[in-house]
Design a protein around this nucleic acid. Structure first.
Lengths: 127, 127
DNA sequence: TTCATAGTTTCATATTTATAGAAATAACGT
DNA sequence: ACGTTATTTCTATAAATATGAAACTATGAA
């Protein structure tokens, strides 16, 4: 992975709404989630969502596909994997063991605490 | 690790000069490196360095100590470890194996390619 | 003390990023 | 063709970030 790619990915993750988006998509799996549902869950207006989704897309962290009226976004696990690899290789000075996440050791660790996201504006999901 | 801490760390790394600084410090080890030498190696003026070093310090990624006239910065491996753990746990949806860096598997992998940093202004190091 | 060195802080400026209303576009049902 | 829904693009504005000159602070040496 090129340095510039890593910087783009880091910058994309370094923002609360985008980090929330990515976490939701990762939980959802390859099936993905439409932009509207993401916006409703995070309590963000659609232009704001569109902006952040674009940032994530340019950074290669999510992919999108149209499905009838909706546009479905999904997490790109490969990109996240490559980012973690980059950080591990480049920012742990050979001393890989010093920076290796605990989770990696116990393969099949705890199943991700689902710390529910609090929407800013309370808006209803799907009617 | 709190979400806000992770965002601060990601933001700190998402900038070329700061990523370069961190990589140099990680390579150097706990001994650390004075601000001046970092600036000389990266070809950045001191106020710029001071600014970026502060960002890294606020994000908890580096520590500093005064040693006579110099101020020595060192990488905080623990912080980087925690960031990687956070990303692995929160952004890999339980599917830890999908995002686990290869480097973590082959413990004691390749010793970090030292891709030399090109200084912007060609300035001499140490006289 | 005075001087040089190593760094920081202050400041002005330029650039980038974030937010959200209004308007435009796309896909579908009638 | 028309209305509805889903999302984007355009636009404006506010806020955060990056840069470097100039001024300031701390340390050690002459």
């Amino acid at each position: 992975m090129k340095k510039s790619t890593a910087i783009a990915a880091l910058g994309a993750m370094a923002q609360e709404t985008r980090l929330d988006i990515f976490r939701l998509l990762v939980q959802k799996g390859p099936e993905g989630m439409p932009a509207g549902e993401l916006g409703a869950r995070l309590g963000q207006p659609s232009p704001t969502m569109s902006f952040h989704l674009n940032q994530l897309r340019f950074a290669g962290l999510v992919t999108s596909r149209r499905e009838s009226r909706s546009i479905i976004y999904s997490a790109n696990y490969k990109a996240m994997n490559e980012l973690l690899t980059y950080l591990t290789e480049n920012c742990c000075g050979g001393r890989t063991e010093l920076c290796t996440p605990a989770a990696a050791v116990m393969s099949g660790g705890k199943p991700l605490e689902t710390e529910t996201v609090t929407p800013k504006s309370s808006r209803r999901l799907s009617k």
